[in-house]
Write a protein that binds this DNA or RNA. Structure first.
Lengths: 347, 347
DNA sequence: TTGAAAGCGCTAACAA
DNA sequence: TTGTTAGCGCTTTCAA
């Protein structure tokens, strides 16, 4: 009744012993030609290569790892994988890893919930990773950091400087200062800040904002807290629109900035004529937004590459710089302008 | 001169034999309490657990994998990791994998270049993955597919239906048809299409567009080709603005749609009054764009989850549905409207 | 230059 | 219920 099924017998993959047998040599010899760890006579070498091709042999990475006690796979721990900065950093890590012959295993902990953080850590430690790159961009990242045992090779990407592991960062503090100084120099009396979820107490963006304001003798208005979605930015933008003393807003990232712009315009305020808005990151859409967004360009992919580089150095027992910082770049566009002439000079 | 360095001797991590010794039992017994593979007498069990805690023992996943001949790690192959659809799909795969106790190793091939594709494949096969999830969203994905040996457990996510491996897809064809029908029903004579990089000949979005137009007896204008960046959308939008017969544009994804809108408005055309624009995907910013974008919501994360589910079934020798399709949802917003009354009815 | 033997850390089969 | 014995597939001594 049923049509004759083709013989689907999935055969056992060839192992080194099969190759050795077919080539008429010993197993270690096969290993030697594979790794070039010793000189093998050309004729044997060729026979081995032929056998490998014929049997379609692929060495077992697991067995190799067990014997060598190290893998070419690193773990990437993060609070998220798809938001702009995260995704770009991951891209950079993967790029650098691939170039070095490593794969990267990703596992995330979405919240700071103990159970979830522990589970992520267990997953990672239960795997065969040579080391860990931790994205410390958010509270989850901080929580993860605390749970990583001291004896695991670790590199931290992002976050406040001063971890006990080698760390690659972006100098968000200085970038934020530049941004605020730009706004102040335009004539704004102060700048309101819509903050991204803070790592601990404050991230570099917020600290830079506060500091630049204080140094200029400008008032430091209360913070607004956003999550990572642009939608909350919009809600906050609408609220900000109520207060006509608000003439400049610094959003924690470009997506929030876009939301804020949208909220402001929803409520009838013009950007930048009535209020200036700046973002952070230089998201690909920041330039296309109307008005195009003044922001700070952060090279997350490069951050990822640097982080992997640190880990590689750590793994090869090289001298590892404890710190690798990169300076974001101010990008002036159309969302900032002097405050409207009618704006109150003071209360 | 130098301050006395603390003794940093990194000690060898504890192995099962250490635990066994300390607990006064045999190695297999330790294994048994760890895996619950057999009943162990409570007192021994407790001693083992204590020893594990005291020695801070973590079983070697590598050794376990070698013995069991299978890992709890899957490989994810893709042409990209950071674009919206990719990042979301990856998120879904990782979520589902994490829930099932798997980690996911990501490796990408950015182009269809033979050397690059082969290198990615080698990396993946050289690692200890239980199976592969392939994102077949683009030409690189197609090229990767062709190089994956037949004996590796594989699941394809996205792409044209009809692969020889189990496949999870989004029904882009039907979604595109709906989108075009919506535009046509508004009174547009035809719809211009700005296409994302095609997988092979045509992706579902393009095929659906062409088909819906043909079925309605509408002319099928020449294609515009964009890459994944919104910036090319802008350029194309400007070009499109020259032709006043263009009253409706279907962009291959929301980012391109945003670019097109921007290009159109750069050139003085109003959206949607002069030209309607639709996107695809329902990117988080699509709703915040001005005007908010009519689009089709694709649940990429769910796609990723389904793909992982298929792979898990495949790995556990369950019956695996060859196909899992999901229907995107039309989202009507403000970027579409009837064509302007002055628009030419025909040539 | 090559092979035999041992071992990486774990699980499974078998006896006791 | 538990221990002994054999591997899993590779790399690395160590002799020859």
């Amino acid at each position: 009744m049923t049509p004759m099924a083709p013989p689907v017998r999935r055969q056992r993959p060839a192992v080194m012993a099969d190759v050795a047998k077919l080539a008429g040599v010993s197993v270690p010899t096969v290993s030697r030609v594979l790794n070039g760890s010793a000189v093998v006579r050309p004729d044997k070498r060729d026979r081995v290569l032929d056998a490998i091709a014929e049997l379609n042999f692929r060495p077992s990475a697991t067995a190799r790892a067990l014997s060598l006690r190290q893998t070419r796979n690193i773990a990437l721990l993060a609070g998220n994988t798809s938001h702009y900065g995260y995704a770009e950093t991951i891209r950079g890590v993967e790029e650098a890893a691939r170039a070095a012959g490593y794969t990267v295993s990703i596992t995330v902990a979405e919240t700071t919930d103990d159970a979830e953080v522990d589970r992520a850590i267990d997953l990672v430690l239960g795997q065969t990773a040579a080391g860990i790159v931790l994205l410390k961009f958010d509270p989850a990242g901080v929580a993860l950091r605390e749970r990583i045992p001291a004896d695991v090779p670790l590199v931290v990407a992002g976050g406040a400087p001063g971890s006990d592991a080698p760390q690659a960062v972006l100098d968000e503090y200085s970038a934020a200062v530049e941004l605020i100084e730009h706004l102040l120099s335009l004539g704004h009396r102060t700048v309101h800040h819509v903050r991204i979820p803070p790592s601990r107490d404050e991230d570099g963006r917020t600290t830079g904002w506060r500091r630049a304001l204080a140094d200029a003798g400008a008032p430091v208005p209360p913070l607004w807290d956003a999550d990572w979605s642009a939608a909350t930015g919009r809600t906050i933008g609408r609220a900000l629109a109520e207060d006509h003393e608000v003439t400049a807003v610094f959003a924690g990232n470009d997506e929030i900035a876009m939301g804020v712009v949208r909220g402001l315009t929803d409520a009838g305020r013009r950007v930048p004529e009535d209020v200036s808005v700046v973002g952070f990151d230089d998201h690909p859409l920041a330039e296309l937004w109307s008005p195009s967004l003044t922001t700070v360009a952060q090279d997350f992919a490069a951050l990822g590459r640097r982080a992997f580089g640190l880990l590689l150095a750590l793994l090869s027992d090289e001298d590892v710089p404890a710190f690798s910082a990169d300076r974001p770049l101010l990008v002036l566009r159309d969302s900032t302008a002097p405050p409207p002439p009618t704006a109150p000079e003071s209360h």
